[in-house]
Simulated assay, not measured.
Amino acid sequence: MALRLEEDEGELSEINVTPFIDVILVLLIVFMVAAPLSTVDVPVNLPGSSAPAGTRPEEPLWLTVTAERALMLGEAAVAPDDLAAALDARTGGKRDTPVFLRADRTVDYAALMQVLDRLRQAGYLKVALVGLEGAP
């Protein structure tokens, strides 16, 4: 017994691209709407934090920026150029040690960014910013 294939049971050689084009157009519209939302530049006046206090290590490494823009590592004054060496001496070269950064309220943003840059250049990337607990 031989099987016979009828002529109209052949494979369909044409692809229907209409649903594909519909999906592409919908994705295009979604990306056109979402793209400007991700690049919004909004001026911000950051409020104080009322977040609960996190856990603190037994001997935290405090880096303080005073109102006079002086750096204090623990209780000792440190020159900005000597910060990396002082941190290495204090941590034994362990660069994954968290540094708790405190700054006086009058310290401007540029001065704080300079300190953060010095920490990054020294290889200390785990930096915790310290604030007052229960600030409004």
Rank of each mutant, 00 (worst) to 15 (best):
E75K: 15
L87K: 07
L25I: 08
T97E: 02
D22Y: 15
T91K: 06
P80L: 11
L61G: 05
A79D: 13
A110K: 09
Y109Q: 08
T64K: 02
L101F: 11
G92S: 03
A103W: 10
T64G: 00
I24Q: 10
V78F: 13
T106I: 13
V23H: 09
P98G: 02
D96S: 05
A77L: 06
P57D: 02
T97A: 02
M32R: 15
V78P: 15
S38E: 11
A86N: 07
V65N: 07
A70Y: 10
F20T: 14
R90P: 14
A86W: 05
P47H: 05
A34N: 07
Q114T: 08
M72W: 15
D104T: 06
L37K: 11
F100R: 13
E68P: 15
D41H: 09
L63C: 06
A35V: 12
E59Q: 08
D41W: 13
R69P: 15
Y109N: 06
V17H: 14
A77H: 14
A67V: 10
L116P: 14
R69Q: 14
T97K: 10
L112F: 06
G54K: 08
T55L: 02
P98I: 05
A53L: 05
F20N: 13
A84W: 15
T39H: 10
S50K: 05
T39G: 05
A35C: 07
G54M: 05
V107Q: 10
V42C: 04
I29F: 06
A34W: 14
V42R: 01
A86T: 10
A86F: 07
G54T: 06
A111W: 15
L37A: 04
A89L: 08
A34Y: 13
K94L: 07
E68R: 14
K94A: 03
V30A: 01
E59D: 08
E58G: 00
V44A: 01
E68W: 14
R95K: 12
L37E: 15
G74L: 12
R56N: 07
D117Y: 14
E75T: 15
D81M: 08
L101A: 01
A76M: 13
L71Q: 12
P98R: 11
G54S: 00
L112T: 07
P52F: 00
F31A: 02
L27P: 03
V115A: 04
A76C: 07
R95N: 06
M72P: 15
L119W: 12
A77E: 14
V44F: 00
D22V: 09
L71T: 12
D96E: 04
D82I: 13
T39I: 04
S38T: 07
V99C: 00
D96I: 07
R120A: 00
R105S: 05
D88K: 03
V44Q: 04
